[in-house]
């Protein structure tokens, strides 16, 4: 089968934090799309599998000046010196040059978890348990995505199954490129607030590229120099400082110990 995408794309997202109320629809849609199993009975927020995780973060001020923001964190799809790619001993992680998407091959993964230690965004998840669905529920799995087994690492891949399906549809229509909006990850589609915009950052005219250039846009841990492809938008200055030093000070107050 030929790959219809000739032009090099750089898929990315802009997430408007001012529109996110942490409803969780994106997390749900993500898990359904990608056959992520329900939590094991003993799983916690540190052993669960959430390819997209929405964190709540507050400004540390007292009531009533306390303000929170919900931050959806998928894999940030680092574009430069991608931390998880170079560390994998057996090439289970790669960056697709045609799309810029950081891919994870669970079939190749040995489960050493070195990539998890390498990822500053904690966007990688390990299968601590066997994937188990309640009886019958395995009938509701997505045929475009294979399930994973115990002992391997998995993460967001911008809904790879959807990209393939979109390419097949395009090829069937005799096109070799995807039109904007033809390929959209499940979380983007599911967001009731339309807080997530997805598209090709290389396409200067796309909405995602336009939003990413806005002055309210920022990326998390930008100074690490890994060129993530997830941009965040906010008009709240305290949130924007997420990528700057001051926040590191502020967060100390929130954590006790």
């Amino acid at each position: 089968m030929t790959t219809p995408t000739q032009k090099k794309s750089r898929y990315g997202m802009v997430i408007d934090l001012d529109r996110c109320n942490g409803c969780g629809a994106c997390m749900m849609a993500c898990a359904v799309e990608n056959n992520v199993p329900p939590a094991h009975r003993e799983a916690t927020d540190r052993t669960g599998i959430t390819w997209l995780r929405v964190y709540r973060f507050n400004n540390g001020l007292k009531f009533p000046n306390n303000r929170s923001v919900f931050v959806p964190v998928p894999c940030q799809q680092c574009g430069r010196e991608t931390p998880c790619v170079s560390v994998c001993p057996q090439q289970a992680v790669d960056v697709d040059p045609a799309t810029g998407v950081v891919g994870q091959m669970p079939e190749r993964c040995l489960g050493c978890r070195y990539c998890m230690a390498a990822c500053p965004y904690h966007a990688r998840y390990f299968n601590w348990w066997d994937a188990v669905w309640p009886p019958g529920m395995e009938k509701t799995l997505n045929p475009d995505v294979s399930t994973r087994m115990r002992g391997v690492v998995e993460k967001c891949n911008f809904c790879h199954g959807r990209l393939h399906a979109a390419r097949e549809r395009a090829a069937a229509a005799g096109r070799d490129t995807l039109q904007p909006g033809e390929y959209v990850p499940a979380c983007v589609e599911a967001c009731p607030a339309r807080a997530i915009v997805f598209g090709d950052l290389n396409d200067e005219t796309s909405e995602v590229a336009r939003l990413a250039r806005r002055p309210e846009a920022f990326r998390m841990l930008e100074q690490l120099g890994t060129e993530p492809k997830i941009y965040y938008l906010t008009r709240q200055s305290w949130v924007r400082k997420v990528s700057e030093d001051e926040v590191q000070m502020a967060r100390k107050d929130q954590t006790h110990g």
Binding site: G24, A31, P38, A39, A43, D45, I49, R53, W133, M137
Partner: peptide, 10 residues
Amino acid sequence: PVMTKIYQES
């Protein structure tokens, strides 16, 4: 049961 993503796992 997948709602455990929202409750239990995050």
